[in-house]
Each structure stands twice: as structure tokens, then as C-alpha cells.
């Protein structure tokens, strides 16, 4: 009976739950789904992480390669994110070149990396003007169930902390690079941005961490990215219901608490990986 009502009138079905300040899956309005992070599972990548927010699963693999720097920035490396949304994760995506949502997500991740200054591109320089590191961060969504951006940012932070770059020396005589795979060093990560997404329902209710269904019924979406100094690295609110500055402040406070939760989770996972080795 409830399932029939849900199919015919999904919005009314949700409204009944929102009146009681809860959601159909039993969560509170400000509660996140279970977050799981798995680090270092892909050995062919230089750094990898799998992040799962409820059912939404994203795997991030980072490959480090050599490249020549641009002429006007001779001592800056590159960080190139790429989000792939294929028919594997959801039937709404078509095979072929990246669609709108994938392009938006890739641009968002690139902006988060730039805005938060989590890695200085100067740190990726091996030899100024000749050789720099380029970090290709590939995100593949395995299961799409809403809140893609939060999961991607989680996976990014965890994967970057897992990256180990081999020591590189430029041979003075030949000018070629000499790579020593045995001595590896981690990346210098200055900030850890974490994203928190909200869905606005009927211009009044604010739901944290929307599922795929909630996203399709929402009247507006909001994503806030914060770092550990309580600075906002990025806010993305593409249209949708208008929000008053007070509501925005509430969202920011929730984003601050979320940052602490995820940061401690990532630290815990990294500790356990280290102790296993």
C-alpha cells in the first residue's frame, strides 16, 4: 500500500515524513548515511581510495607521470581530475563522451583543489622548466545514489594521502630522469577540504546528504566545501529555491561538524593501513 502511494505520489509520500522531521530511510534531516573509506586497494595506481556514502560508491585512482611544464609556469606541476559517470553506475547515463553532470563534477573537483590549495603545484616540480609531476586523478562512480560530489571529495582526500611518489633525480650528464622506486615519499598535503551537500524541499526543509530519489524530488541543491581552518573553499548553489542568509549559516555549521567526522574517519583508516604494514 505504501509502495503504491510512493510510486504514484512520491512528493506527497516524502512530505508526510518531513512533517515528522524524518526521512523514509529512517534518518534524521541532519544525519549522514554510513560513510566507509577503503584506502590503497588498487596496487597498480600510485594512490587509490574507495569512498562509500550509503550506496553511492566512488573509486579514485591516482597515477603520477612526468610532463613538461607550461612556458609561463615553469615550476608548477599539474593535477588533472576526471570524473567518469558510465552506464555502470546508473541507467540515466549514456555511453560516450562525458555528459553534463560528469563535466560539472570534474570542474567542481578541479575548483576544490585550486581553491583550497591542498597541494601546492610548486611541490610537484622536479626540475624547474624541464620536468614536473602530473597527477591524474580518475574518479569512477560504481554506484550512483545521490550526493556524488561529497563522495568524490572524500575519495580524493583519502587517495591523495595514500599517494607515494618515487624519488627522482635528473642525471647531469644525460639530462634523463633517474627513478628510484624503492624510496618513496608521500605528498605534502596542506589542507583537507570536505564537502557537505544539502537538498532543499519545498523551499523550507533542508536535508543533508540526499539520496538519488531525494535529489530528483528536491527544489534546490547546495554543496559547501570546508577545510580544517573553518574556511569555505567552495560553495555551489546552482539556482533552485532561494535561501536566506540564516539558513546558509545553519548549513555552514553542519558542514563544520561533518568535516570533523570525516577527517577523524580518514585518519583512523590511514592508521589502520599503516599498522597492517
Amino acid at each position: 500500500m505504501a509502495a503504491g502511494f510512493k510510486t504514484v505520489e512520491p512528493l506527497e509520500y516524502y512530505r508526510k515524513f518531513l512533517k515528522e522531521s524524518c526521512r523514509p530511510d529512517g534518518r534524521e534531516l541532519t544525519q549522514f548515511r554510513t560513510t566507509t573509506i577503503n584506502i590503497g586497494s588498487i596496487t597498480t595506481a600510485d594512490g587509490s581510495a574507495l569512498a562509500k556514502l550509503g550506496n553511492c560508491t566512488v573509486i579514485c585512482g591516482i597515477k603520477a607521470e612526468f610532463a613538461a611544464p607550461l612556458a609561463d609556469t615553469p615550476s608548477k606541476g599539474y593535477i588533472v581530475p576526471n570524473v567518469e559517470l558510465t552506464p555502470l553506475c546508473s541507467s540515466r547515463f549514456r555511453p560516450g563522451p562525458p555528459g553534463e553532470e560528469a563535466q560539472m563534477a570534474s570542474q567542481f573537483i578541479a575548483d576544490v583543489i585550486d581553491n583550497s590549495q591542498m597541494i601546492l603545484k610548486e611541490d610537484l616540480c622536479i626540475s624547474s622548466g624541464k620536468l614536473v609531476w602530473v597527477l591524474y586523478c580518475d574518479f569512477i562512480c560504481l554506484d550512483y545514489d545521490g550526493n556524488l560530489l561529497d563522495t568524490c571529495v572524500c575519495a580524493l582526500v583519502a587517495a591523495l594521502r595514500n599517494v607515494r611518489l618515487p624519488a627522482v633525480k635528473i642525471n647531469e650528464d644525460t639530462g634523463l630522469a633517474e627513478v628510484n622506486l624503492k624510496t618513496t615519499s608521500p605528498l605534502k598535503i596542506l589542507k583537507h577540504p570536505i564537502a557537505t551537500s544539502f537538498a532543499v524541499f519545498d523551499d523550507t526543509f533542508l536535508l543533508v546528504d540526499p539520496t538519488g530519489e531525494e535529489e530528483s524530488l528536491a527544489t534546490g541543491l547546495l554543496t559547501i566545501v570546508m577545510d580544517e581552518d573553518e574556511r569555505l573553499c567552495s560553495i555551489r548553489k546552482p539556482g533552485g529555491s532561494a535561501l536566506s542568509p540564516e539558513k546558509l549559516q545553519e548549513c555552514i555549521s553542519r558542514a563544520i561538524t561533518r568535516h570533523k567526522e570525516v577527517q577523524s574517519l580518514v585518519n583512523e583508516v590511514l592508521e589502520s593501513v599503516k599498522s597492517e604494514k
Binding site: 574556511r231 560553495i235 546552482p238 539556482g239 533552485g240 532561494a242 536566506s244
Partner: peptide, 10 residues
């Protein structure tokens, strides 16, 4: 009220 927000920098 605020309809859209886009930002660069921290």
C-alpha cells in the same frame, strides 16, 4: 534571498 552562489578562493 540568495538564489545562486559560485565562488573561487577560500
Amino acid at each position: 534571498k540568495v538564489l545562486t552562489v559560485a565562488s573561487r578562493g577560500a
